[in-house]
């Protein structure tokens, strides 16, 4: 039982991180219908900036700088897209982000070389005993930060003029434009928020007990894609549900070391879960079914 609770808590913390990444993915999709395949690379970019800066400036400043750089990176894609591709099909947009992903990850891989960097987080390798479960301190802080960020996001999404404009735009872009909503600003904010959230997620994704930051963290970050798809690409709540589901599934498989053919399944569990859900619900758990209009 204590095993179970401990795995659960770890799963929730991991799921929270996935939720942050998946949320950025969903926000971008809602605002611009772009599936951002460069999201994982943006995360690594944010993490890289933090890792390089934290030796010279306070950790918090480094994190803010990482968020800023990742946000700017996201904005560059957004500007490219609004500059030329407003009316292109979804595949062209996704391919644009794949092109950016190739560029970013190639350059980041070169900069990392063989090194594994630390983001310099202040929690080190301390373990906290909650009585019913043990958890890395960084993971515990991760749960708190994630909860605060998610709450802040949903408040902003519900009440701020940006959130209202964005939801209106997602409902009916044309009507929103007629009501005087400036889509440019709305979509830029969405991309920037997504980039910043990814940078925060990078800190916790690379903190103890994981070894640290290198370019391969992009692949770990990609597990937030199943989370987003699982919840429904156009559902912000779905991103959180999907993130938690994937995180818990991964922690459980890893904890109980569920094996298949001698290999640990935890790396592929997110993808297996996604495939199963998509077989039953092609639009994800909370995603809207598309109504064809002719």
């Amino acid at each position: 039982m204590t095993d179970f609770l401990s795995y659960l808590v770890n799963g929730i913390s991991l799921g929270g991180i996935y939720a942050l990444i998946a949320l950025g993915f969903v926000v971008v999709f809602k605002a611009t219908e772009v599936v951002n395949f460069a999201h994982g690379s943006l995360l690594v970019l944010g993490g890289y900036v933090i890792a390089r800066l934290h030796t010279d400036v306070p950790f918090v400043v480094a994190v803010l700088a990482g968020c800023a750089v990742a946000a700017v990176g996201a904005l560059v894609i957004e500007r490219l897209y609004s500059w030329r591709l407003r009316d292109s099909n979804l595949n062209a947009l996704a391919i644009l982000t794949i092109g950016v992903d190739i560029l970013l990850i190639t350059e980041l891989t070169r900069r990392f070389g063989p090194d594994i960097l630390s983001t310099g987080d202040p929690w080190g390798n301390k373990i906290v005993d909650l009585g019913f479960a043990e958890i890395a301190q960084a993971r515990l802080v991760g749960i708190g930060v994630t909860a605060v960020l998610l709450a802040a996001f949903f408040v902003a999404f519900k009440y701020s003029s940006w959130g209202i404009a964005m939801r209106a735009g997602a409902e009916d872009g044309e009507a929103a434009a007629l009501m005087g909503i400036r889509r440019g600003r709305v979509t830029m904010t969405a991309w920037a928020v997504a980039g910043a959230l990814a940078a925060v997620a990078a800190v916790f994704l690379c903190a103890f007990p994981t070894p640290g930051l290198d370019a391969s963290v992009r692949l770990t970050a990609l597990r937030a894609f199943p989370a987003a798809i699982l919840g429904g690409l156009d559902s912000t709540a779905g991103a959180v549900v999907g993130g938690l589901a994937i995180g818990i599934a991964e922690a459980m498989t890893s904890g109980y070391s569920v094996k298949l053919a001698g290999g640990n399944l935890n790396d592929v569990v997110p993808y297996l879960v996604m495939l199963l859900v998509l077989l039953v619900r092609p639009s994800g758990l909370l995603g809207t079914k598309e109504l064809t209009r002719v």
């Binding site: 395949f37 595949n91 798809i229 690409l233 297996l272 996604m274 495939l275 998509l278 092609p282």
Partner: peptide, 15 residues
């Protein structure tokens, strides 16, 4: 839908 497939197909690479 096309774009869901793009992400779903990732799963085959990792599996």
């Amino acid at each position: 839908r096309g774009i869901y497939l793009g992400v779903a197909s990732l799963s085959l690479v990792f599996i």
